[in-house]
Computed example of a mutant assay.
Amino acid sequence: MSARDAILSRVRAALAGVAAGDDVPAAPRSGPVADVVALFAERVADYRAVVERCSGPDLSSRVVAALPDGARVVVPPGLGVKVPGATVDDGVSAAELDGFDAVVTEARLGIAETGTIVLDHGPGQGRRAISLVPDRHVCIVRAEQVVRDVPDALPLLDPGRPLTWISGPSATSDIELDRVEGVHGPRTLVVLLVG
């Protein structure tokens, strides 16, 4: 008997007596998280991202403060905040994107347990390339967009849309485990947590 056959045999034995369509109870989830927004901020910061909490009225000034002086900035169509001097992405080429220092986007949602930001590239989020090419990504997440965990996030996402899951700045490590940031995306992630 092959290893595959042995595994399938154990699966069949475990499912013996369970009729097709029977509801299988979900695995128990951990207890409630008192403040998912605070947990989200903590977990995002654990990934070496900069997290700043702000109010709605302060958002515009916080966006400007998160950008380096003189930075060339690209923003997606439909961004809900004005970014002075920014270029609105209207299909900027990859070569042109490489000349931008920063991007400002909104998020579809944030996941507290994993410190993950999800973009579905709708209005205010833009196409995937603009969130991956510039060296600094300033991402706006509203407190009401933060959910507890991945099972809470999945029903809110459209599987037909492209999804980008971001857990901190782009990072990789070599064989000696030396961390290198910015190889596959932005070197700096700034999360403006509104609310």
Rank of each mutant, 00 (worst) to 15 (best):
Ala26Asp: 10
Asp149Pro: 09
Ala45Pro: 12
Asp58Arg: 10
Thr105Trp: 01
Ala153Asp: 05
Ala27Leu: 15
Gly110Met: 01
Pro134Ile: 13
Cys54Glu: 12
Arg43Thr: 00
Val73Met: 11
Leu79Val: 06
Gly99Arg: 05
Gly91Lys: 09
Val73Glu: 01
Val63Cys: 13
Ala71Val: 13
Val33Gly: 06
Gly56Arg: 07
Thr114Ala: 03
Asp89Ala: 04
Ala102Gly: 09
Val83Asp: 15
Gly124Met: 05
Ala112Gln: 08
Val92Lys: 14
Arg127Ala: 11
Gly70Leu: 13
Pro28Ile: 01
Leu67Asn: 09
Arg72Lys: 12
Val103Lys: 09
Val75Asp: 07
Glu144Trp: 03
Val92Ala: 12
Leu109His: 05
Gly99Pro: 07
Pro76Arg: 02
Pro84Gln: 05
Val24Pro: 02
Arg142Tyr: 14
Val138His: 08
Leu79Arg: 00
Asp22Asn: 11
Glu106Gln: 14
Gly124Pro: 09
Gly122Lys: 05
His137Gly: 11
Glu113Pro: 02
Pro32Asp: 15
Val147Ala: 03
Gly115Cys: 02
Pro57Asp: 15
Asp35Val: 11
Asp23Ala: 11
Asp149Thr: 03
Phe40Tyr: 12
Leu39Pro: 04
Asp152Ser: 04
Asp89Cys: 04
Val44Trp: 02
His137Met: 10
Gly80Phe: 00
Gln145Lys: 02
Ala49Gln: 03
Val104Arg: 05
Ala27Arg: 10
Glu113Thr: 11
Ala38Ser: 13
Gly115Ala: 01
Asp90Ile: 11
Ala49Asp: 04
Ala66Cys: 06
Glu42Val: 00
Ile117Ser: 01
Leu109Trp: 07
Ala65Lys: 07
Gly115Ile: 01
Gly126Asn: 01
Arg142Gly: 09
Ser61Glu: 13
Tyr47Thr: 12
Gly126Lys: 01
Leu59Trp: 02
Ala65Gln: 12
Gly85Phe: 07
Val118His: 00
Ala153Tyr: 10
Ala45Gln: 05
Val74Ile: 15
Val133Leu: 15
Ile130Tyr: 09
Pro57Phe: 14
Val147His: 03
Leu132Tyr: 03
Leu79Lys: 00
Ala112Met: 09
Val138Trp: 04
Gly115Asn: 01
Ser60Met: 12
Pro77Phe: 10
Pro28Phe: 10
Ala143Cys: 08
Val88Gln: 15
Val146Ala: 00
Leu79Phe: 02
Val138Met: 08
Val63Tyr: 13
Arg72His: 07
Val133Cys: 13
Leu79Gly: 03
Ala34Val: 05
Ala66Lys: 02
Arg148Asn: 03
Glu96Val: 15
Gly91Met: 06
Asp135Asn: 14
Ser60Pro: 14
